[in-house]
């Protein structure tokens, strides 16, 4: 095949005498961009693609951390076991509920904050910087502080609750309370970050739009709804996609909330990331952990495609 096609080529274009002379220059020009890209793809292959593929390979084996040099072929047994494990579905459910509990209020609050900061305020820069502070805090530090606040017997929040006559809440063992606690940390850390992104988006909306809306007699709220929100749509889609991915991979906050990989005594706030970690690093089943990693990966791809599809459809129906 290859031979015959190369043999045919010169015959197809016989009248081009200058061609061999031109070739090196054109070839160089054609290859150069790839050369410039090569360092990135080299690094990506080594640190992105290879681990990804190797993880897939590991997920088809029985590999134990304690005897990690031994790999026994299992086929898709790790996957079928995973899908029949109620703890996996529990983790998936928790990831979803914590994702909703943290992402929705977070983005709504960010939108509101951005709107307020978009006004001409005294000390605007200070507020903007202050909002980004939680984002700059390490997960570990933030979570440890929150774990103190949410302590059952000696935590500040329960102290306040009981001082106003309410019953203290077991922020660790109770399912909803613990999920709320974890979500609170996530919300605290990421609200400011999203608010800044929204703010940047808002500032790219031309001022004339607001002026003409004001001329038409639109109130502040109507301006927000009919000018700001439509103008922000691409930004909102971006934050939703990023937050969805973040929520799917949620790990540090629930791990450090009580400092164990089980995600609570009934696994009531064990996320997929934590389930992966527990399988791999508490029970030492690396093969199973790799299978969880791949399922998570596929899930995220699926969610991203879904997000893109929804965004695309909304754009189409609007126009």
């Amino acid at each position: 095949m290859a031979l015959s096609s190369t043999a045919r080529l010169p015959a197809a274009k016989p009248g081009e005498p200058a061609r061999p002379a031109k070739r090196p220059g054109r070839l160089r020009r054609r290859i150069a961009p790839y050369g410039f890209l090569a360092p990135f793809f080299g690094l990506f292959a080594a640190f992105g693609l290879f681990p990804l593929l190797y993880t897939a390979w590991v997920s088809l084996h029985r590999v134990e951390l304690q005897t990690s040099d031994r790999m026994d072929w299992l086929g898709f047994q790790n996957y079928s076991r995973l899908l029949s494990d109620p703890f996996f579905w529990n983790a998936l459910r928790n990831t979803f509920t914590i994702g909703v509990l943290s992402t929705v209020p977070q983005l709504l609050m960010a939108l509101g904050l951005a709107h307020l900061l978009n006004y001409k305020l005294r000390g605007r820069t200070f507020f903007r910087v202050a909002m980004l502070m939680p984002y700059a805090t390490s997960v570990a530090a933030a979570t440890l502080v929150f774990a103190q606040l949410f302590g059952r017997d000696y935590g500040l929040i329960n102290w306040v609750l009981s001082s106003i006559g309410l019953n203290p809440v077991d922020w660790q063992a109770d399912t909803w309370a613990s999920q709320f606690g974890v979500s609170a940390i996530v919300t605290w850390r990421w609200t400011g970050y999203n608010a800044l992104i929204y703010l940047a988006g808002m500032q790219s909306i031309p001022g004339e739009l607001y002026e003409s809306a004001a001329v038409d007699g639109a109130s502040r709220w109507q301006q927000f709804r009919h000018v700001t929100i439509p103008g922000l749509r691409p930004t909102i889609v971006f934050t939703v996609v990023v937050s969805t991915i973040g929520a799917t991979q949620l790990f540090g906050e629930p791990l450090l909330y009580e400092g164990n990989s089980g995600g609570g005594i009934s696994h009531q706030y064990q996320t997929l990331g934590l389930y992966l970690y527990e399988q791999g690093w508490t029970f030492f089943h690396l093969g199973r952990a790799a299978a969880v990693a791949w399922v998570m990966f596929l899930l995220i791809v699926l969610l991203a495609l879904l997000n893109a599809a929804i965004a695309a459809r909304r754009n189409r129906t609007d126009r």
Partner: peptide
């Protein structure tokens, strides 16, 4: 409008792949 939209969703997908790869490699 069509072109940027496509680019955005491929970018989202690309970053998805990258983020997942980072997660996986963090484990190894």
């Amino acid at each position: 409008m069509a072109t940027p939209r496509v680019r955005r969703s491929t970018a989202a997908l690309g970053s998805t792949v990258l983020a997942a790869a980072l997660l996986l490699s963090a484990c190894s």
